[in-house]
């Protein structure tokens, strides 16, 4: 049964509760969309400027989740109020962003630069190899400390303050506080990246370089340096996405965040159009809504298959690849080196 067929009788039966359900599904969709934007925006920035398909993107998200978790677990103590916890969470985001941006930049300089002159397959294999190494290192480390890598790290997730864990009654709809937090962070991040791209000189160079890096060089701009900065920032943003997922009960710090983040990030950037910031924003919203609606349908028991949200999201991807392979806002060509 399709989703629309399922929702129609519900809407007709009881309009008030149906609107409350719709509000809850909408807000949860926005929250998920904010998370999807956060994990995908770095991938699209890197591809847009450099033409690099970065398969290590998910690994940086995974590292972000664990590093953010480490900060929270070690700093948070029992008596802290929710505001203090949230402030420490922001400090964790800033720290993780800084550390993993620098690490990403080092990776670009040491590993990516030597292979820019080779075919894109080298970049794919190298970045995927880095991702696998990091995932295995996380598995070894977590097992060493008695934590199963496939099971979300409970201690980190439990640092979520009650104020965000609670469900709030909004116009009769029960909505978890974390979704509002994710939406707020997502909006701040969209604005921050948008202002960076449109209001700063570096953003201008990045947008110009996405179209024609050779021409940008010929205007006296060091495109290689821009590559390093964008690669670092893109990875740093993936890590911020990871810190956000650390608290999310649907995700949590695990070793397979590496692949999960990568897959969802690719779905978003392909639907939005590889390299398009606007496309990433719109696609994250669409994928978030689709996931939220499918999750609702699953929880109602209309379709008894826990993989329904994933099937819906990847179905959207397949549909886009068939109907419009360049994505919603994609261009025929993007930058490169």
């Amino acid at each position: 049964m399709s989703e629309s067929l399922v929702l129609v009788p519900l809407l007709l039966d009881d309009p008030i509760s149906s609107l409350q359900v719709a509000l809850r599904v909408f807000v949860e969709g926005l929250g998920k969309g904010a998370v999807f934007f956060t994990i995908a925006v770095g991938l699209t920035l890197i591809f847009g400027l450099m033409g690099v398909l970065n398969f290590a993107h998910g690994a940086w998200g995974m590292l972000g989740a664990y590093l953010g978790g480490l900060v929270m677990v070690f700093v948070i103590t029992g008596g802290m109020g929710p505001l203090t916890v949230v402030l420490i969470f922001f400090a964790a985001i800033a720290l993780v962003f800084a550390v993993l941006t620098v690490t990403g930049a080092v990776m670009e300089i040491k590993l990516m630069r030597p292979i820019y002159d080779r075919t894109p397959m080298y970049q794919i294999i190298l970045t995927f190899g880095v991702a696998l190494i990091l995932e295995e290192l996380i598995r070894i480390t977590t097992l060493t400390f008695g934590q199963h890598p496939e099971v979300p790290w409970r201690a980190a997730m439990d640092t979520l303050p009650d104020v965000l864990g609670h469900r709030y009654n909004i116009l009769g709809a029960e909505i978890r506080g974390l979704y509002f937090f994710e939406i707020a962070l997502g909006v701040v991040l969209v604005l921050a990246v948008y202002l960076f791209l449109t209001r700063t000189l570096y953003g201008l160079y990045i947008r110009a370089g996405s179209e024609d890096p050779e021409m940008v060089q010929a205007l006296g701009i060091n495109v290689r340096q821009a590559f390093t900065v964008v690669f670092g920032i893109g990875m740093g943003l993936a890590a911020v996405g990871g810190v956000l997922l650390m608290w999310d009960p649907l995700w949590g710090p695990t070793a397979h965040l590496n692949i999960d983040i990568l897959l969802y990030a690719f779905v978003v950037v392909i639907i939005g159009g590889l390299g398009s910031f606007k496309g990433t924003v719109v696609a994250a919203f669409i994928v978030g809504m689709a996931d939220s609606i499918a999750t609702y349908v699953f929880h109602q028991g209309y379709i008894d298959h826990s993989g329904l949200p994933e099937i819906t999201v990847f179905g959207l991807l397949v549909l886009m690849l068939i109907l419009r392979p360049k994505g919603l806002f994609g261009v025929e060509e993007v930058g490169g080196h």
Partner: peptide, 30 residues
């Protein structure tokens, strides 16, 4: 190339090679 260009060498390439998604002013600003 960027070092050579920074020394004072400009290029008006064949087929113009505008940054087509940037405004006229942004093209100049770059």
């Amino acid at each position: 190339t960027y070092e050579v260009a920074s020394m004072g060498m400009g290029w008006v390439p064949e087929e113009r090679r505008m940054f087509s998604y940037l405004t006229v002013e942004e093209n100049l600003r770059v």
